[in-house]
Structures are given as structure tokens and as C-alpha cells.
Design a binder for these strands. Structure first.
Lengths: 310, 310
DNA sequence: AAGCAACGATAGACGTTGCCAATCGTCGCG
DNA sequence: CGCGACGATTGGCAACGTCTATCGTTGCTT
């Protein structure tokens, strides 16, 4: 059975005239005649009672026409929906973001994304790197914002911006009076996030820490970490975009001497068909962060500017 | 777009494997591969993300698959309904019957019809001959039970049985003492039905009446006519099948000398596709009436038997 | 009564489509 | 590095849909 034949059937039921129905379908009268006879043979029933005077649908035709219209309507719907889905810059876009980035980056880029890609419904999903990569591979997410490289030929990524780390100190800390802090100086009393956060490993690596922290507390979120530093429990490294939140918590921030930092990138499946959407989202984020990146080697731009010029 | 391609799409969405999906569809893997690519090109969107490891439906595919399943389901429904409609001896059968026949014939044939044609839903429609023929030509009815011939090459008919007329007399009427009544003797005080009833013309013709009845009353139904005769207003001719009702009304019935009567036939459109149903209905009715027809020339069978042996 | 017009059915030719078997290219694994 | 699994590609073939031209029937008109 063919959708075309069903359209012929509908046309004939409406026009009750082979010639005019054929014209409405854009085919010749013999074509419609032959195809309709085939359909009747396939179904094993007579759909139309032909006479020299008029063509009339049989009761069987009346019983079937509803389903026939339904099938054709669904086919039309498929085409219509497909037309809407054709734009890769439209529709849902599930974007995974790591927890140390999401609360500080999203407020910055939400408005620009809405403006540049109004048809794209960006749905953020916050989780740690490993979980995000897993969900990306499982097609549960369309792209990720990470601070690490991705592994495997099935995944690809593009750098969006470089984000320097800053030393986060209690106001009364010995290092708080310095203009710059050497990364290794933080190793003694550094506080870090729980396992699984990429920022934990990167912070430890930046300050040359062995990784064996003994009984040191591991914060479950950057927000917790900041409050602990503010309370004088120790120091930490925070990503530049969190500078605003840190300052609000009453923490002293200082640039790092060696310019330690991380690279934020957008990652996606190599075969993902909506590469254009990934590219567009990445471009918007990179453009939004370009101002922050200038002169960021020194880190001062981030300390004074991040989260303040929106 | 083709229903076949939509089935391929569903299979691939379910199996997530070209080879197995193709096997499920009964085609080779290249066939499914090519057809699916064509479908994607037609829709302008990628439906499946292929990798060496796995095949995954895209979000666009997820959005479309509902409509796709809907279209295929409607197609299946068409086939299923058509299968039920294939039997010409099943389904609605709209049967027009004239008012002087319906009340007396239907009770006789309803049970036999249900028994012989259990799947046929016979829907009686009572009206006068002209209206019935009009509705038959308009495809509002499937067949008619008439007492007249039908005209036109578009219609055909078959004789079912011969039905004699009987003289209906008030018990105290002068003719009531006779064994037989000569038709012409009724002309003097005959009562007839209203215009449009074929029985009216046939009764008048049988007794040689001119047709100009002056102020004579014209009954709107045979039942009314019988009550009028019973009340002594005059005489009439009734069809044999109404004998039971007439006797119940206290009317004296007498056979007619010349054996006047009418022929009941079933009529249908020449091109009507369910000729088998017409034939079957006609056969059941003819068989049921066969007993009544024997020896009906004299008319006595009908007087004593009609409506009594059911 | 004969010719004509309208209509659906039929026939033959042609281009397209769907299909299969065979093969290729890629990727992952031992 | 070879092998196996998998999807993509190719070439040939048969079936299908479509066209133009024509036929047969029917109803109307002259």
C-alpha cells in the first residue's frame, strides 16, 4: 500500500470524478484509474461504484476513508514537523556543564545565547566531568562545557576561553597582603573539592601538591569551599569566573605568579549531526568571554572585572 | 514519502542496527541503508547518528517517530478494516420496503435472515416506491423490496414471490357469504390507499375501476384501511401477507375469482458491488415465502395460513 | 435514428524506483 | 597486523508508476 494511492482515494471520494480527481492529484486520468483499481484489488473490496453518470463511494469506502485521511494527515505532519526540525539552530539543545563553571558562566551567557540563537532551547545539565561524558556518549546530552580535554575518537572539542585561577585567602591570612601569590605557597593549607571535580585535581597540580591530603576536608561545591575559606579554615584556588562570588563572601583574591589556570572547552560527539548548533553556542560563549580574557595572564582583570560588568 | 520507508525508520529506531532492522523488514541491509538515507534527504534532517559502534536516533527522530508510528498504524487499520469489509455478506445492508409489505413480511423473514446471514446487519427503511427508488439511486439504500417493476438500465430486479390479493369484506357485507368474489364486484364500494401507494393503483386496476373515485376516502396505511373495512365503510383488496392482520381485525376474506395479485421483487443498482448480498437476501426471502406460494392461485392457502405458521 | 460528447477502462512504451549481491571503508579487538 | 563487525557504495535487474493514444459505453442532441 502506498500513501500516494491513499491520496488518490481521498481525491476521488471528494471529486467523485476520475478526471477532476486526477487533475487535483497532478496525474493523468488513466493513472488514477489504474492505481485505484490496484488499491481495490489489494484491499479486496470495491471502493467506488462507477457508472456512466457518476462515481459514488461505497459504504466500505466510507468506513475506510477516516483511516485513510488519518494516514495521510500523519504523513503531512511528518513533513511539517521535519520542516521545523530542519534548522540545526532550533529546538532543544542539552548542554552539560561542570559544577565549578555552571553557576558563574551561565548567568553571563544566557542572555547572549537567547539573543543570538532565539530558536535554540538550551537546557543546562550540571554534573561532574565523568558523568557528563558518559551522558554525552549515551546521547542524553548534545554538548558539554568542560575544563578538560576529552578522550576518544568519537568525541571532539574546541577551546572557548582560558580561565586563570586565583588565590582565595581569608582576609587575615599571611598571603593576603601580597600583590601576587606563588602557587606553591598555597600548598600548605589548601582546601579542595571532593573527588570527581576536575578543579580539585587541577588546583592540587597547580600548587605542586602531592595529592595525599590526609584528613583535609573535601568540599562538595565551590560555594561551600568559598564559605570555608571566608571562615578562615584555609586557602584555595578558584576559577576566575567565581571571583565575584568569592568577593561577595568576603574573601581576598590574589593573582597567581605562574598564571595557573584552566581552559574551558565545548565538547561533542564527532558524529553529532547538529554540529552547527555546537559551533554557534561555542561562538557565542567565546565572544562573551573575550573581554574577560584580555590581559588575563596577570589575573587582575578577572579579580576586578568578573561578574561585575554584566 | 512512502509507508515502506516509514516502516524502515521504525525498525531502525527499535533495533538500532541496520542489519537486524533490515532482517526484521525482510530486506537486505543495503536496501534499508539506501532507503533510509533517501528519507533523511527528503525530510532534510538526520534521523540517525551512525557510528561504528552503534546507531542512535537523533532528537529529531524522536520527535518524528510518533507521527511515523501513527501513519503506519493507520495503514494497518486500513488493511484490518478492509479485511472485515471484504465479505459482501457482512456489514450494513440498507433495505427499502414499501409500507404495504413491510409490516407483514418483515416479521416473517427477520429470523431466517439472521440465521442465514448472521453477519449482515439488515436495516429496513419504509417508504413509498418512488421515494425508495430515489434513495436507491442516491446510494442511500442498497436494495428495495417492491411490488412493481423498476425502470432504467441502471437498476435491476429479481422476482421473489407472487402474492395474491384477497377481497376484504365487512362480516355483514353481501359478498361475505360467497366462496369466491369476482374482482369487478368490489368496484362499487372499494376503499383504497392514498396516492403514491402502488397497492392503490393495483387494487383499482384489478377490479376494473376507472380511477376517478370522487370523494372516496384515501387511507394513509393498510392498517387504517382494514379498520375502515371492519367498521363497515366498504370493501378493499389486501395483499395476501396481510391476511392475518385482517382476520385479527374481524374482517372476512375471500379469494378472488381471477386470481389478481402482485409480484414482490427485490431491486438494486446494476453496478452495486455487493450483488452477492442482494442475491442472498432475496434467496432467503423467496425460500421463506415458498410455502405460502403453493396453491396460491386459489388464494385459500393465504387466507388460512398467512401469519399463522411462524 | 444517427452523430457527438463525456467518461472511465485499456494497451503499449518509457523512465524511475526499489531491490539484491558483491564489494568497499572504517573501526575495534586479539 | 590481520580479522571480524558494520554501515556505505556500486551495478545490474525486475517491478512499478506514469504517460499518450485509443476503446467501449452511455446519454444527449440534431
Amino acid at each position: 500500500m502506498n500513501l500516494r494511492d491513499l491520496r488518490y482515494m481521498i481525491a476521488l471520494a471528494e471529486h467523485r470524478h476520475f478526471g477532476r480527481a486526477a487533475e487535483a492529484c497532478g496525474v493523468s486520468q488513466p493513472t488514477l484509474s489504474v492505481q485505484l483499481r490496484k488499491l481495490e484489488e489489494l484491499l479486496g473490496i470495491t471502493l467506488f461504484e462507477r457508472s456512466s453518470k457518476a462515481v459514488a463511494p461505497t459504504s466500505a469506502c466510507d468506513r475506510l476513508i477516516g483511516h485513510v485521511r488519518g494516514a495521510v494527515a500523519e504523513a503531512e505532519a511528518i513533513l511539517a514537523v521535519a520542516r521545523d526540525l530542519r534548522d540545526p539552530l532550533a529546538g532543544r539543545f542539552r548542554l552539560g556543564i561542570i559544577p565549578t563553571l555552571a553557576p558563574y558562566l551561565l548567568p553571563l551567557v544566557f542572555a547572549p545565547l537567547r539573543e543570538a540563537l532565539p530558536a535554540l532551547e538550551v537546557e543546562p545539565w550540571e554534573d561532574q566531568t565523568n558523568a557528563l561524558v558518559e551522558r554525552l556518549r549515551a546521547h542524553d546530552l548534545d554538548a558539554l562545557l568542560l575544563a578538560t580535554e576529552v578522550e576518544g575518537v568519537d568525541l571532539a572539542s574546541r577551546t572557548l576561553f582560558a580561565e586563570p585561577f586565583l588565590a582565595a585567602l581569608p582576609p587575615d591570612h599571611a598571603l593576603a597582603s601580597r600583590d601576587y601569590v606563588v602557587e606553591a605557597e598555597l600548598a600548605r593549607d589548601i582546601l579542595v573539592l571532593a573527588d570527581g571535580h576536575c578543579l580539585r585535581d587541577q588546583a592540587l597540580a597547580a600548587c605542586g601538591h602531592s595529592g595525599a591530603l590526609g584528613g583535609a576536608l573535601r568540599a562538595s561545591s565551590l560555594s561551600t569551599l568559598l564559605n570555608m575559606v571566608a571562615a578562615g579554615y584555609g586557602t584555595t584556588l578558584i576559577p576566575g569566573l567565581a571571583a565575584g562570588a568569592a568577593q561577595d563572601a568576603g574573601i581576598v583574591l590574589r593573582p597567581l605568579a605562574a598564571g595557573a589556570g584552566r581552559t574551558v572547552r565545548i565538547a561533542w560527539r564527532t558524529r553529532f549531526p547538529r554540529a552547527a548548533a555546537v559551533e554557534a553556542v561555542g561562538a557565542v560563549i567565546a565572544a562573551r568571554l573575550r573581554g574577560f580574557a584580555e590581559g588575563s595572564a596577570a589575573g587582575m582583570t578577572w579579580v576586578s572585572g568578573a561578574g561585575r560588568d554584566a
